[in-house]
Amino acid sequence: MNNINHLSDFTILENVWNYVSIFIVFFIGLFLIFFSEKIFDTTKVRVCSLYVWHTILCSIFIFTTSKIGGDAIFYYTASLIHEREFSFGTTATLYFTTIFTRGFGLTYISTFMVFNIIGTYGLLALDASLRHATFDKSKYIKLLALFTVLMPSLSYWSSGIGKDAIQFFGTCFLLWSSINFKKRNIIFLISLIIIFTTRPHIGGIAIISLFLSLWFISSLSLKKKILYLIITFVPLIFLLPTVLDSVGFSKNYDYSLANLFTFIKLRQTYTMIGGSSVDIGEMNFIYQLFTYLFRPLPYETHNTLAFLSSLDNLFLLSIFIITILSIIFVKREKFLLNHHTENRWFLLIFSLVGLSILSYTTANFGISARQKWMVMPILLYFCFQCMRVK
């Protein structure tokens, strides 16, 4: 990505419209969020509070990008001038951003606020999912779930202009719709389309996961399984070249399983840039997973932003440790993957396959801090499902 990482080429607040547009977008978001409490089975106070919290972190993100740069500036500036043919991934995100920058004349900050609304809806879906996972748990676990939703890095990375806010929205709605799969299958499909449009390789993993999960759902008859498998498999055949092309595979390699593994190995070196990169090639698989999910830890940081992110990593690590200890030492009901309303098989396959590939190919802490939220919401859902305390 040709990253324009400075703001010297344009002025953020140059006229009255720049100020007015910020408040217009904010209050449109507040209006939409205010009437969302029934959708997520919660209160107006809770949804509005989460919106305000997310907006605070969005404001911090705006400030940091104005000082140190970032992909958000690229997406904003490129959306003002781009004349590309439509394609999935970065270009699709630019097309979406153009609706607000060139279509409605929104400024840098007000465009940020649009993505802030998108990220907030993802946060509301995650909050609803974790409340579902903890409805029969102790007040301590419910409080821990709330603290999880309020993690600063979660709202920070899901509020910026670019793919991350849209992807976070898609992942969280994919999770939320899977909890009541029969009633929310349309939302599930829309979420799948959003994810594929934004990051085709993650969308491809989701489609394959859905394809595989159908084999394990015991409530489906054989005829329905065959029908759904055909419906899932046929589009996958046509979309596979797009998925591979989105990560640069088809441009440089012939289609073969051996070349695919070679390319995945090579992807490790693509992200080994900057001071926050590590050599994951020499790590075993478990340590690669640990590195992707929980590093950097506080003692590994080199600046303020990395240190603050490491505190959230420490909190996430604590959640996983509590879950593991709970599974080992606390008596509980058996956790069933075949559930009468939830598609837990899909969530499990998607999160584990996605995590495995991402952890194997991402060697940069800055990238993993943003992109792990493509699978982390689902992993957290499973953590709170299995968590018990004495």
Rank of each mutant, 00 (worst) to 15 (best):
P200C: 07
L227M: 12
F188L: 03
L220Q: 06
G204L: 00
V234E: 12
S209F: 04
I195C: 02
T197W: 08
L212D: 01
T232R: 03
H201N: 14
L222D: 12
A206N: 08
A206L: 10
K223W: 01
S219D: 12
S221I: 05
S221G: 15
L189K: 03
P241G: 05
L220T: 00
S213M: 06
I207E: 00
R199C: 00
K251C: 06
I194Y: 08
F196S: 08
F211H: 04
S218Q: 11
T197Y: 08
S250N: 15
Y228W: 13
H201M: 09
V234D: 12
T197S: 09
S209T: 01
I205R: 04
L212E: 03
P235C: 03
I187P: 00
L210V: 00
P235G: 07
H201G: 03
P200I: 03
I217C: 05
K251Y: 15
S191G: 15
L220V: 00
F249I: 13
D245C: 03
K224L: 09
T198D: 07
L222K: 14
F188M: 05
L240K: 10
S219A: 09
I202N: 08
T198S: 10
L214V: 02
F233Q: 08
W215N: 10
L239F: 14
I226D: 05
Y228R: 07
T242L: 15
I237S: 04
T242W: 06
I193C: 11
Y228C: 07
K223R: 13
S219T: 09
K225S: 05
I217K: 14
G203M: 01
T242P: 03
G204Q: 01
L244W: 15
I230N: 04
P241S: 04
I226E: 02
L214P: 00
S209C: 05
R199T: 08
H201D: 12
T232I: 05
I202W: 11
L212W: 06
T232E: 09
P200M: 01
S191C: 11
R199K: 08
I190D: 01
G204K: 02
L212V: 11
L189Q: 02
L240A: 11
F196G: 01
S191D: 12
S218E: 12
I226Q: 08
I226Y: 01
F249A: 09
S250Q: 14
F249E: 10
L192T: 13
V234A: 14
F238N: 02
I230Y: 04
F216E: 00
D245G: 13
L189W: 05
L236F: 13
V243R: 10
K251L: 15
L189A: 11
L239C: 11
L192D: 08
I207H: 06
S246H: 12
S219F: 00
K224A: 09
T232V: 07
R199V: 04
L227A: 14
L222H: 06
D245Y: 13
I237E: 07
I217G: 04
I208Y: 14
L229A: 10
I187R: 07
L236K: 05
G204R: 04
I207T: 04
L229F: 06
G203F: 03
I205Y: 09
F211P: 00
